[in-house]
């Protein structure tokens, strides 16, 4: 199982602060996103670029409280008990 932390729009759409998902196939970010969109279809427009299957450019991924700056974030492997967050651009008060 991996734990997903929800912030801003993610928290509004899911109605939750956090949720656990069981990854059984590729055990990577792509599989997690597929599960998220299946459960919350409204997240598709936020997570996935229009007319493509790539992650939206505005989304950052944090794994275990560390932002991952990689070329292909969908292929990032996830391990048991990892903590994952999808982050939209920030806006300080």
């Amino acid at each position: 199982m991996v734990e997903v932390l929800y912030f801003a729009e993610f928290k509004m759409i899911t109605g939750k602060k956090t949720e656990r998902f069981l990854l059984q196939k590729e055990k990577n970010v792509k599989e997690l996103i597929e599960l998220l969109i299946k459960q919350y279809p409204k997240l598709r427009n936020i997570l996935i670029s229009a007319d493509t299957t790539t992650l939206n450019d505005s989304i950052s991924i944090a794994i275990n409280h560390s932002i991952k700056n990689v070329k292909n974030p969908l292929s990032l492997s996830l391990n048991e008990n990892d903590i994952v967050a999808f982050l939209l651009p920030v806006s300080g008060g």
């Binding site: 801003a8 509004m12 505005s58 939209l88 651009p89 806006s91 300080g92 008060g93």
Partner: peptide, 20 residues
């Protein structure tokens, strides 16, 4: 622009908007 916080304005017309 650098700290991981997000701001949502709730408007008087009942709508709301997260700023990015």
């Amino acid at each position: 622009t650098e700290i991981e916080v997000w701001k949502k304005e709730e408007l008087c017309d009942g709508s709301s908007d997260w700023h990015h």
